[in-house]
Amino acid sequence: MVTREDVINIARLSKLYIAEEDLDEMTKAMADIVKFADTINNASEDGVEFDNINNLSNAFREDEVVPSYDRDEILSNANDTDEGHFLVRKRV
């Protein structure tokens, strides 16, 4: 069961604003999504190694340094920067 309160809470955690009048529709949509995802519970678990469905393991990287990106490039997508930092407006 997905309640209106669940939707409000999830929106809060994701810093999303949902208008009061959209809440009922959102709750119903969310319930449908969860119901769809629940289908997976019908699958047989026999012989399946917990959730490793693709049977891949250990794609490791060796611990060798590769030069990082230029700072200007790193900051180039930011809305705002100052003194070599990403700038975020103070959160209320």
Partner: peptide
Amino acid sequence: CSCTTQFGADSNTHCCP
């Protein structure tokens, strides 16, 4: 990722996508 973990560098110079 392969960025260095060295401490004390200028801000955002040990970064990649």
